[in-house]
C-alpha cells in the first residue's frame, strides 16, 4: 500500500482505539459504580448532583489525561534517546534518568537540608540530568561509534542501582515520609488531579512539540556522526537539544506520577515495526501507542487487586522486563 495512505489509516485506527480505551478507563473498575453512560453524560451534560458523574469529572478525567500525556512523553523520550545514542536498548529507565530523577525528588521532598531548595520538578530534572550525564560519560556514548552499546547499558544499570540505593537510604532516614515516597517510586496515577495536571501539561506539551521538531535531525544522526555533520547537522546543538527534551519530558512525568519505566523502551520499537525507520513517521505513532499503553496499564491497575490499586508502574514493569530480555537476546545472539 501507498505509504501516506498506510500511515494515515494506521493513525486513524490508533486514534479510534485510544478514544475507546479512554472511555473504558473512565468508568471501569470503580468502587462506586460508574457506567459508560455516566461518562457520556458527564462529558456532554454534566450534572454535579450525580455522584458517578462527579467521580468521572473530578477524579477520572484528570487521571486519564495524565495517563495519556505521560505515555506520550515517555515514548517520545525513549525515541529521542534511542535516536541520539543509536542504541536500541536506550530508554530513560535503562540509562539512569528515571533513577536519578527519583533520587533528586526523594532528596528535596524528605531531607530538611534540601527541602524547598527547588520545586520537585526541577529536582527531578536535575537528578535525571546528572545521572544521565554520568552514564553517558562512563559509557563514552558521545562518540557514537556503535561499538560501546553494551558499555552504555552497563553504565546505565550501575548508575540506576547507585541512585536507587541512595534513594532508599534517604527514605529510611526520613521514615515518616517513607510510605508516600515508596508509592511514588513505583509510579502510580492514582493521585493525578486537576491541580497536578495544570502544571504537567504545559511542560509535557513543550517537550512533545520539541521532540517532533527534532525528528529530521534524528533521521540524519542514524547515518553516523560523520555523515550527519556532512549533511549540515550541528551535532553538538542537536545532542544538547535532544538531551534537554528528554530531561523535560522525563522530569515532568516523574514529578507528576513517579517513576514509570519500560514505556520509553518498548513503544519506540513497536512504532518502528509498524512505520519503518523514519523518525518523522514513527515518533507520532510512538506517542499514540505510549498514551494507549499507559492508559491500559492504569485501567488494569484498578482491576488486578480490585478494589485495591496496584501501581501502574509495576504493571508496566511486568510487561516490560520480558521485552527487555527479548531485545537483549535479539541483539547479541
Amino acid at each position: 500500500m501507498n505509504t501516506p495512505i498506510k500511515s494515515l489509516s494506521l493513525g486513524i485506527l490508533l486514534c479510534m482505539g485510544l478514544v475507546l480505551l479512554s472511555w473504558w478507563n473512565l468508568f471501569a473498575w470503580s468502587v462506586v459504580p460508574v457506567t459508560g453512560l455516566d461518562v457520556w453524560h458527564a462529558v456532554t451534560a454534566f450534572d454535579s448532583q450525580v455522584i458517578a458523574q462527579r467521580i468521572v469529572i473530578d477524579l477520572r478525567l484528570p487521571r486519564l489525561l495524565t495517563a495519556l500525556l505521560v505515555g506520550a512523553a515517555l515514548a517520545a523520550a525513549g525515541t529521542i534517546m534511542q535516536g541520539l545514542t543509536r542504541n536500541p536498548l536506550a530508554a530513560p529507565s535503562v540509562l539512569g534518568v528515571n533513577a536519578g530523577a527519583a533520587l533528586g525528588m526523594a532528596l528535596v521532598s524528605t531531607l530538611p537540608a534540601f527541602y524547598g531548595a527547588f520545586s520537585t520538578s526541577i529536582a527531578a530534572m536535575l537528578g535525571g540530568g546528572l545521572a544521565w550525564l554520568l552514564v553517558m560519560l562512563l559509557g563514552s556514548a558521545w562518540r557514537m561509534g556503535g561499538n560501546d552499546q553494551g558499555r552504555l547499558v552497563l553504565a546505565g544499570v550501575a548508575i540506576s542501582a547507585l541512585c536507587a540505593a541512595l534513594t532508599k537510604a534517604v527514605v529510611i532516614m526520613e521514615e515518616d515520609q517513607a510510605a508516600g515516597v515508596m508509592t511514588w517510586l513505583a509510579g502510580s496515577l492514582a493521585d493525578a488531579r486537576w491541580q497536578s495536571w495544570s502544571t504537567f501539561w504545559p511542560v509535557a506539551l513543550v517537550g512533545l512539540i520539541g521532540a517532533l521538531l527534532l525528528t529530521p535531525a534524528l533521521n540524519l544522526l542514524q547515518l553516523g556522526e560523520d555523515n550527519a555533520r556532512n549533511l549540515g547537522i550541528n551535532l553538538l546543538r542537536s545532542k544538547l537539544l535532544g538531551s534537554l527534551l528528554v530531561l523535560i519530558l522525563v522530569g515532568a512525568t516523574i514529578s507528576t506520577v513517579g517513576s514509570i519505566g519500560f514505556v520509553g523502551l518498548i513503544v519506540p520499537h513497536i512504532a518502528r515495526l509498524l512505520m519503518g525507520q523514519d523518525f518523522r513517521l514513527f515518533l507520532p505513532v510512538a506517542m499514540l501507542l505510549g498514551a494507549g499503553l499507559v492508559t491500559l496499564a492504569d485501567t488494569l491497575s484498578r482491576a488486578i487487586t480490585y478494589p485495591m490499586e496496584t501501581p501502574a508502574g509495576a504493571i508496566l514493569a511486568l510487561i516490560g522486563a520480558p521485552f527487555f530480555i527479548y531485545l537483549v537476546r535479539k541483539r547479541t545472539l
Binding site: Q222, L223, G224, D226, N227, N230, G276, Q277
Partner: peptide, 14 residues
C-alpha cells in the same frame, strides 16, 4: 563541501 568517509555504517531498514 561534501565528504565521503572511508568506512560507512550500515543503516538498518533504510
Amino acid at each position: 563541501l561534501a565528504l565521503l568517509p572511508q568506512t560507512q555504517p550500515i543503516p538498518e531498514g533504510i
